[in-house]
Design a protein around this nucleic acid. Structure first.
Lengths: 216, 216
DNA sequence: CATTATTTTATCACGCAGTTATAATGGTAA
DNA sequence: TTACCATTATAACTGCGTGATAAAATAATG
């Protein structure tokens, strides 16, 4: 089926295309050329065409790209045309922030459950989702055919929970813990290391100061 | 001063080196070779040496790298040896999650204030930080010499707030809103688009299924 | 203490992948 | 039917990652 491998860089850009196309749809725009889109998105038109061509000719010469069609095609490629069941482990602020973000459900990510070790939180209901004890984790994952687990817990607990999730048959881990997880090859780990993001920002702030403040 | 430009790819890897070196320090390790580190971090030793050499010879032949020295040097490069003042705009779950994460303060990111438009939240105190009205934003930024603003607000409000921050003299925006911000060249924007991260995860889950489930 | 073997970095060079630019093709619209 | 537009396909370029080699320091040995 999948003949040629799509590069990571291309995949990383697709969600952004998807977002812009969604906005264009809301504005009632029916078609768009790679040139117009490149101006809006501040990337080269060449890159847009090259990227989209990885998945076959979505565009038409002399016409451009059909916004609605391209939007749904990208959704298919990203796999957000179907539904994914998700659980959140760690019902702190970050876990609750994710639970409360309504758009995830619109994109087909159904939050099936939340888990925590804190007895005070267990039993509480966030956005219609009950917070359960992590003791029930394995059973819940199996019973509800959960694909994705968001890990919003301290780094010390993360490896153990990850192991348990893998054994319970989870497909992917959305990892917010500040550590690397080692899992089998067929389990996907997507890291969101906020502290690293903040450090990159710090670097850029400092190098900007060096650049602008070099006259003295 | 800064003769050669450091590539983005190298900078992106530095925080991860920093994290591993910190753990080595905690374990009391005094020195490490690029080979040993490469095994732990699952990258090539060549890449580690190449990366570190961008900033001058931190290592010594026959000895390796001094963990403590390298740790502090990377901190200098990333600019986390000095202090940055930070405010959080949007005191919802995500904003509070950031405020509650103690390690940021350890890295020199001082949270000076939090802001919201919700009258119910204004006046509350989170981790010793009072939540203020966004009306006071400009004045606060100027009075407290705030460098960085974390934007944890809905995308509809983000552009307006970003403009106001820029006018007030902010140096960098840590943007969690699901939109791109347009700011002058000398203002840094670091995006954390969680929905895009989740879509990339979705793609990888689906392509994993294609790979493993192709026997039928 | 001199000498040699070993360790390990710094530097160089190559190849591949990702990006941008150009040429060729086909559709649109007047 | 023709001029124009915008894609697809191809080519050139740039930059990143990897492996190989030379240089330098450490550790071992007599």
């Amino acid at each position: 089926m999948a003949e040629k491998e799509i590069s990571k860089a291309v995949i990383a850009r697709l969600p952004r295309y998807y977002r812009y196309l969604g906005e264009l749809m809301e504005d009632g725009v029916e078609r768009i050329s790679s040139n117009d889109l490149s101006v809006r998105m501040r990337v080269t038109a060449s890159q847009i065409r090259q990227d989209l061509n990885n998945f076959g000719g979505f565009g038409q010469q002399g016409y451009g790209y059909n916004v609605k069609y391209l939007y749904t095609e990208i959704a298919k490629i990203l796999g957000i045309d179907r539904q994914h069941s998700l659980i959140i482990i760690g019902a702190g602020n970050l876990g609750q922030a994710i639970a409360n973000y309504a758009n995830f459900e619109k994109r087909g990510f159904l939050i099936k459950g939340m888990f925590d070790i804190n007895p005070r939180l267990i039993g509480l209901v966030v956005r219609g989702i009950e917070i359960r004890s992590v003791d029930d984790l394995e059973q819940f994952v199996k019973d509800n055919d959960v694909q994705i687990a968001a890990l919003t817990i301290p780094k010390t607990k993360a490896p153990e929970i990850a192991d348990r999730l893998v054994k319970a048959g989870i497909k992917a881990i959305w990892n917010f813990a500040h550590t690397d997880l080692s899992v089998p090859d067929d389990v996907v780990v997507e890291n969101v290391h906020l502290s690293e993001s903040l450090m990159r920002l710090s670097y850029r702030v400092c190098s900007m100061q060096d650049k602008t403040g070099q006259e003295e």
